[in-house]
């Protein structure tokens, strides 16, 4: 059974289409959602988190219909959600905030709830900061706190909207580690701009551009779509769609490879840039 199923889902904000005819089945795994700003990633994740209803099409989450009030509550009991910009009660301690969320998650019995709160804070490495006020925590700690509240009750579906944004490299590595070794192995749907997070974490990647799915497969399959379309050279090649100088001092080019150029192994990043046609003229000198 799919953890998340979208059938021909559409959504508009005013006259602007955010999603158009999206069909997607998410099986238990870590699935990355890649796409430029405004591609519809957050809209899709908000629907998966039951906070936004589609204008057209049908969604089923964990086998239930979120349009039905009682089924929606059942979904929410089994769901963990970290929005793009998680909010916090700054004057609460980390423990009190997660405890409050646990109450809202219907974990009613006090002792069990407190054990659960301690467990998730421990998991994200905030045990020693549990009784510190949130306003005193660093940005990385707050991001971990957001993950902690989403992990309450061992969710079957974990939705993370750009959860690695703003984290330093060490924190991102810790985050990857936390997601990859979640004890209950939930279905994880994570949106990101970081293609290396996708390569490192995700068994599957979906590329969303202008509200439609442009690619759905493994990270290796995504990288393979750029085969023979990536080459390096000592000088910048005007025929490339995108090119930039690498740390080795050579230019990496993406586009229709000239016959005389030597192709190199493409990465997920290369393939994503080709798909999105991003105008990143990173032609640094």
């Amino acid at each position: 059974m799919s953890s998340l199923s979208l059938e021909n889902v559409g959504k508009k904000f005013g006259s602007t289409p955010a999603l158009a005819g999206v069909r997607l089945e998410v099986e238990p795994s870590v699935t990355g959602l890649l796409g430029p700003n405004g591609a519809g990633k957050t809209t899709l994740l908000r629907m998966a988190a039951t906070v936004l209803a589609p204008d057209s099409g049908r969604i089923r989450i964990l086998g239930r219909d979120p349009a039905h009030p009682h089924e929606r509550v059942e979904i929410r009991r089994r769901l963990g959600y970290v929005p793009q910009e998680p909010g916090f009660y700054r004057n609460f301690t980390a423990f009190d905030f997660v405890d409050y969320v646990a109450v809202l998650k219907d974990i009613a019995e006090r002792r069990r709830r407190h054990d659960e709160v301690r467990k998730v804070l421990d998991y994200v490495g905030l045990r020693d900061h549990a009784h510190q006020r949130i306003k005193a925590l660093s940005g990385g700690m707050r991001q971990r706190l957001a993950l902690a509240q989403a992990l309450l009750g061992d969710p079957e579906l974990l939705i993370l909207d750009e959860a690695t944004a703003g984290l330093d490299p060490e924190q991102r590595l810790r985050f990857r580690e936390m997601i990859s070794v979640l004890p209950q192995r939930p279905t994880v749907l994570i949106s990101t701009h970081q293609t290396d997070d996708v390569s490192a974490l995700c068994q599957r990647v979906v590329v969303l551009i202008a509200g439609t799915i442009r690619f759905d497969g493994t990270p290796a399959e995504l990288a393979a779509t750029a085969s023979d379309r990536v080459w390096v050279d000592a000088d910048r090649d005007e025929r490339a769609a995108v090119s930039w100088r690498t740390s080795a001092g050579q230019f990496r080019h993406i586009g229709e490879r000239p016959a005389d150029a030597q192709s190199v192994t493409p990465t997920v990043d290369d393939a994503y840039l080709l798909l999105s046609g991003a105008d990143i003229s990173a032609r640094s000198s």
């Binding site: 929410r76 909010g87 009660y89």
Partner: peptide
């Protein structure tokens, strides 16, 4: 007004306890 101030309205909307109960 705590949820408006802290921008947690949507975050808490994804939880099972409805706003009317809160």
């Amino acid at each position: 007004l705590r949820d408006h101030r802290a921008d947690t309205v949507e975050q808490h909307e994804a939880l099972p306890m409805p706003v009317s109960t809160r």
